[in-house]
Design a protein around this nucleic acid. Structure first.
Length: 481
DNA sequence: CGGCGCGTGTATATACACGCGCCGGTGCCATATT
């Protein structure tokens, strides 16, 4: 039996599917032929099948590096649902006994999920070294580039980890990466460009229309208009937790919809609850920061609105890519007002060490901890302990700052361009628009009624809004008395 | 950025003008504390 026949059969027997989606088969076959792979498939097209099926065909354990605990748990659950028992996530949610047991019985497992931070533990690495590793998968590999330099530094250690594990067969997976970012991923993982098979598909999602709404001190009004009009469910993204909370409270009063906010301050249990309610259609609208969404598999999200300007086109496409997974018409709206970039610039400000901080640290061999943020300290300590020359450290930081600035500039250009928004997005990913969907973008002309709740529903909403208002007023009145 | 809230100061005892500062995202893990 050829590999091709074999994986087709396993697709049915393990996952119950009859055919592959675009790119999956190609990725698996490349990996099975012994090539390291970088797999870039559009958001929501089943990247996990790629490493899972590859794993089933190979001898040895599959290590999956995953960025989030919730993502690991989802994947573990999913595999168990398909009947796989030899699967575990090693993380801080595990109690010590449980962890010990898994580590002592690793050869009974097929799939192990872990974070890059967990992989830094010497004991753990020692165990994995003694194991036959069939495949090492890096899920959401864009995190290397997005987070490695100034948020989760352990993402940059994955190359060293690969080396320690004697360069196991590797598959890196992502939905959004430019040519430059793909190269960054390869370099960071110590993957040879010429020996790594890149399976790259278009980032374009033709069923998503792009719209930019120019605002002038009236974002809230414009937002309300859109919320009342659009088909639900949907996500509104903010770059501020406070603003997300405010708008949530406000929309609860102003509209009849079920609205919840989601960001890093929400307690763990509530986070899970909100996610589940959203997935079960009990919540119409989520007001979220960038904390929300990775690994959200919900088919029927109809819109993604950005109240603030995202930091980069990669981030924007990741967030926008969460709508329309069912292939039905969906819309991505950016509310833009000139000057919006300053919030992002402010967010970046304390992220990287300044030259003065570096000078001090290199002169004294220790971090000046008076005015450094935690992450700045961490970055400096990293440079000191790796004995990176001062000038090189400075150069790296400068180039990261420049990169962030360019990314933001491109978002401003996107917001302001009077030509096709879709073309502009694709250009960033070195693609040209091949076909123009009927509803392309706000500059090509959009039939907004496609995304509107039907007239009946609209009127019903209006009526309920009114009733809600009366109810709220009554309650307030009663409180007053 | 630029708007807003706050405290201070000024011409006159309440109101208004002015300047200043503020505004802020993403998660692992380990360890200490309820």
């Amino acid at each position: 039996m050829t590999n091709q026949e074999k994986i087709k059969e396993l697709l049915g027997s393990h996952f119950g599917y009859t055919s592959f989606r675009e790119g999956q088969e190609e990725a698996i076959l490349a990996a099975l032929s012994g090539e390291d792979t970088l797999v870039m498939l559009p958001t929501g097209t089943g990247k996990s099948i790629c490493y899972q099926l590859t794993g089933y065909c190979l001898k040895g354990i599959v290590l999956i590096v995953s960025p989030l605990l919730s993502l690991m748990q989802d994947q573990v659950e999913q595999l168990k649902m398909f009947g796989e028992k030899r699967v575990a996530a090693i993380n801080s949610l595990m109690d010590i006994k449980e962890k010990e047991w898994v580590l002592n019985h690793l050869n009974q497992y097929k799939f192990i999920f872990l974070s890059p931070e967990m992989l830094q533990q010497p004991l753990l690495l020692e165990r994995f070294k003694q194991l036959e590793i069939g495949l090492m998968a890096i899920d959401e590999a864009h995190c290397i580039s997005q987070w490695g330099m100034d948020f989760r530094l352990d993402y940059l250690e994955l190359g060293t980890i690969r080396k320690t594990l004697n360069y196991p067969l590797t598959m890196a997976l992502t939905a959004t990466a430019t040519e430059t970012v793909r190269q960054e991923i390869l370099d960071s993982l110590l993957l040879d460009k010429d020996k790594t098979k890149q399976i790259v598909y278009s980032v374009d999602r033709p069923n998503i229309a792009f719209s930019v709404v120019a605002c002038r001190r009236n974002k809230e009004k414009k937002l309300l208009e859109k919320i009342e009009q659009l088909k639900k469910p949907g996500i509104i993204y903010f770059s501020s937790k406070k603003k997300a909370d405010e708008v949530t409270a406000w929309l609860k009063v102003e509209t009849p919809f079920a609205v919840e906010s989601y960001h890093s301050d929400i307690e763990g249990d509530d986070k899970i609850k909100i996610q589940q309610q959203f997935i079960q259609n009990d919540i119409d609208i989520i007001c979220a920061t960038s904390a929300f969404g990775m690994g959200i598999n919900k088919e029927n999200i109809r819109f993604v609105i950005h109240y603030h300007l995202p930091a980069s086109m990669e981030a924007y496409l990741q967030e926008v890519g969460r709508c329309g997974r069912d292939g039905r018409p969906s819309i991505a709206i950016l509310l833009y007002e000139p000057g919006d970039q300053f919030l992002q610039m402010r967010l970046h400000e304390d992220g990287l060490p300044t030259p003065a901080m570096l000078n001090y640290a290199y002169r004294n061999g220790t971090v000046f901890d008076g005015s450094c943020s935690t992450i700045q300290q961490e970055i400096i300590e990293n440079y000191l302990s790796s004995k990176t020359p001062l000038e090189e450290a400075k150069a790296q930081i400068m180039s990261r700052e420049l990169q962030k600035k360019r990314q933001l500039d491109y978002m401003v250009q996107y917001a302001e361009t009077t030509s096709c928004k879709r073309t502009h997005i694709l250009y960033y990913f070195d693609e040209t628009r091949i076909e123009k969907p009927l509803n392309c973008c706000s500059n090509c002309g959009l039939d907004e009624s496609v995304y509107s709740a039907d007239q009946d529903e609209f009127l019903r909403n209006k009526a309920t809004t009114f009733l809600n208002w009366k109810k709220t007023l009554n309650e307030l009145f009663l409180l007053e008395n």
